[in-house]
Write a protein that binds this DNA or RNA. Structure first.
Lengths: 128, 128
DNA sequence: TCACTTACTTACCAAAAGGAAACTATAGGT
DNA sequence: ACCTATAGTTTCCTTTTGGTAAGTAAGTGA
């Protein structure tokens, strides 16, 4: 059974879990980060090509979910071939500093973490 | 096929995706937040009961992964029955402000987001 | 001898996430 | 008549995630 937007009202009691669950997927944070870096609105294929390895389907559902949450604005121009542009809303922009903070932390501590992982695996081999 | 710790070296090229992928699971952020709030180290069952709806298995793998990354320190006392205590490392503590920022953002914008979701669903019904 | 405790591990299973490829609409170009 | 382009949607499939329940170790107390 597929999960639909309507089913996302779980954890309604806990704002933190409810909201952060949304960013636990594979692409949301990346898309927000990307739209945040870009000064102007981006087209669908522009986003897809910049990310590189996202499927059309997943980009669509990611953007739709972000739109539903009010994080991303979708502007559809009724032309042919179609043109659709995406940009962060004020809400989306207000999240940016926080995930940028996370991202900077990740970059800064990447070495420490990978070394820790290797050490942990090595220790495991000795024990088993 | 199960994913083992050893297999986590994907996205090695992108620190952000590599590190943040780790927090995309159901429990990691919650466990860090919890250990961060607590002044003293916490025992396994203490963590489990505070969270409430986490399974033993998932708490074990979550803590192991955080330990492997160097975020959490595990202290094992060779007593019977066993006693194991967990607390954040300095690395783990350095992440706290960032996810606390996220959490506060989530609380602050929870209303806006749930309203946006409802509006989006309502609009969808009209169109289809 | 049996139950009880803690902190697990393991096997099995259901659900969810996500990828690949084909299909869609529509107009313009050749 | 066919190809191109954009931004999707749909179907089918595999992979990943996470839950349940049972089993494990090892000493203590009844």
């Amino acid at each position: 059974m597929k999960k639909k937007l309507e089913d996302y009202d779980l954890h309604a009691s806990c704002p933190i879990r409810n909201v952060l669950d949304r960013f636990g997927d594979k692409w949301s944070i990346l898309v927000i980060l990307l739209l945040g870096e870009h000064k102007t609105a981006m087209r669908f294929n522009e986003v897809a090509q910049t990310i590189g390895d996202i499927s059309q389907k997943m980009l669509t559902v990611t953007l739709r979910t972000l739109e539903a949450d009010g994080m991303v604005m979708r502007k559809h121009y009724p032309e042919i071939p179609p043109r659709v542009e995406y940009e962060l809303t004020e809400l989306g922009k207000s999240l940016l500093p926080h995930i940028n903070g996370l991202a900077q932390w990740a970059v800064k501590n990447y070495d420490t973490i990978t070394k820790s992982r290797k050490k942990f695996i090595a220790k495991k081999q000795l024990v088993s």
